[in-house]
Design a protein around this nucleic acid. Structure first.
Lengths: 213, 213
DNA sequence: CGTAGTCTTGAATTCGATCAATATCTGTGG
DNA sequence: CCACAGATATTGATCGAATTCAAGACTACG
C-alpha cells in the first residue's frame, strides 16, 4: 500500500499548516512532532512521534491540515497517499482497522498531554514528559543500558508542556539536582525511575499489542 | 449496525475510567464530555461532545478506558458494540471510513484544546471556548435568535480550560462587562462576535461535510 | 574566530491560585 | 408556601508559581 519511502533531514517540515494535499505518514525511524501556533508565535507541540506512529491522519482526511509536523532528527517516513486512503478501507479492512487503531492511540497521547498542560505544575509536567517518552522508547527497544538518545532542546520541552523557556530550564535543573534523571549531550538517563513516576503520576501499564503498518 | 438506543439523565457517567468493556457511542441528542483526572482530584475536561459526535473510540478499541465520559444534559446515545467493531470494518468499509473520520475530527478538537490550555491566557481561553462551542452549535442548528442553550457550569469551564474556579468566574465577569457575550439562566448569547473571535484567534472556517452515523 | 543556537542565572513583575466569606439559586419535603 | 440543604456563583485579600526582562556562558560549525 505504501507508495514511497522518504528520508528527511532533521528540521524538515513535512506537513504544513493549511496544506491541502498532505499525505498520511508512518514514521519508520527517527523522531518527529506535530504542533500548532498562534499568530504572535506562541507555539504548542501537540505530541512527539516515535517509530511506528502515524502522522497526518487528520491532515489527510480533511481538506486542510490544522497543524504542522517537523522532523526532530533525520527520519524515514512511509507514505500512504491520501488518494488511496478510501481504497484502503474498501480493499484491506484489517489494515484500515489498524490505521484507526493507531489514530486512536495518537489521540490517547494528546489527551494525556492536555491533562498535563491543563492540570500539572511545572515539575509534574516535566516528569510526565520524561516518564512517557522513556517508557515509549523502552517499548521500541531504543533504550541501551538505561540511556536513550534524546533529541529535544529545552525549547521543545517548553513548547510541549506550555511553559516558558526560562522556567523550563530552572525546573529541569532542579529535578536533575534532585537526582531524578540527567540529560547531557543529547542522552537521557533515568536515574530515579520511581520518583519520576510518582511525580508524574504515571502508572506503568503493560503496552497493548500494537499494529505495524 | 447500532444495537441500541440509550436515554440517560444529566450527570450519568457512561464510560468509566479503567472500564474494560466500554462501547462505542454516537451522541444523538444532548451534550456530554470526556475527562481525565489526577489522584488528588484535579480534573481536566478533554472535550465537549455535541450531537453527531463519536465518544469512546479509544475506549472501545483498547483494553481499558483511559478517560471517563459524562452526560452534561439528558442525552440519547446510539451504541455500536465493541464486539462488532471489527466486523464493521470488514463488512461496511464506507461506514468504517466515517468512524475514522469522526475519530480524527474528535482529535482535531483535542489538539485545539491543548493549544488553548498550553498557550492562551485566561481571557483568550474563555473566548476560545465560547467561540468554538457557539460555532459548532450553530452548524447543528442549535442556535435560535442568537441564543444557545448552554449547560456548562463555571466549574466545567474551569476544568476544560485548566483554570481555577475563582479565576474563571472573575475573567468571565470581565468579558461579560466588556459586552462580549452573556450567559444567564443556562443561555448563551454572543453579543460581540467579532471581538470574541479576535480574542480567541478563532478563524471562521466553513465546516467540512460531516458523516452521519 | 565570529555568529547563531542553546543553555544558564538573577531580578522584577504579574497572572492566576488559594483562602475565606457571602450571596444566589434549585430542588425537596414538610 | 416556606424552610432547609447542597450546588452554584460572586467578591475581596493574599500568596506564589511562572513569566518576562536582561545578561552571560557555552557550543558547534562554517
Amino acid at each position: 500500500m505504501k507508495s514511497d519511502h522518504l528520508r528527511l533531514v532533521a528540521g524538515t517540515e513535512f506537513i504544513h499548516l493549511e496544506q491541502t494535499d498532505a499525505e498520511l505518514f508512518t514514521l519508520f525511524s527517527g523522531w518527529a512532532f506535530r504542533y500548532k501556533e498562534l499568530v504572535d508565535g506562541r507555539r504548542q507541540i501537540l505530541n512527539f512521534a516515535l517509530p511506528g506512529d502515524l502522522i497526518g491522519l487528520q491532515a489527510s482526511l480533511f481538506d486542510k491540515a490544522l497543524y504542522g509536523a517537523i522532523a526532530l532528527t533525520d527520519v524515514e517516513l512511509c507514505v500512504i497517499p491520501r488518494r488511496r486512503l478510501f481504497k484502503l478501507f474498501e480493499r484491506m479492512p484489517p489494515l484500515a482497522f489498524d490505521v484507526t487503531w493507531l489514530g486512536a492511540s495518537g489521540e490517547a497521547i494528546v489527551d494525556e498531554n492536555l491533562l498535563t498542560a491543563g492540570r500539572r505544575n511545572a515539575a509534574e509536567r516535566i516528569a510526565s514528559l520524561i516518564a512517557t517518552l522513556y517508557r515509549r522508547a523502552e517499548t521500541l527497544d531504543l533504550v541501551r543500558n538505561g540511556v536513550l538518545d534524546f533529541p529535544l532542546t529545552q525549547q521543545h520541552i517548553a513548547d510541549a508542556l506550555g511553559l516558558s523557556l526560562v522556567h523550563t530550564n530552572k525546573t529541569l535543573a532542579r529535578l536533575k539536582t534532585l537526582g531524578l534523571f540527567s540529560i547531557r549531550d543529547g542522552k537521557l538517563t533515568l536515574i530515579n525511575r520511581r520518583a519520576v513516576s510518582r511525580l508524574a503520576q504515571h502508572f506503568e501499564k503493560e503496552p497493548a499489542p500494537r499494529p505495524l503498518l
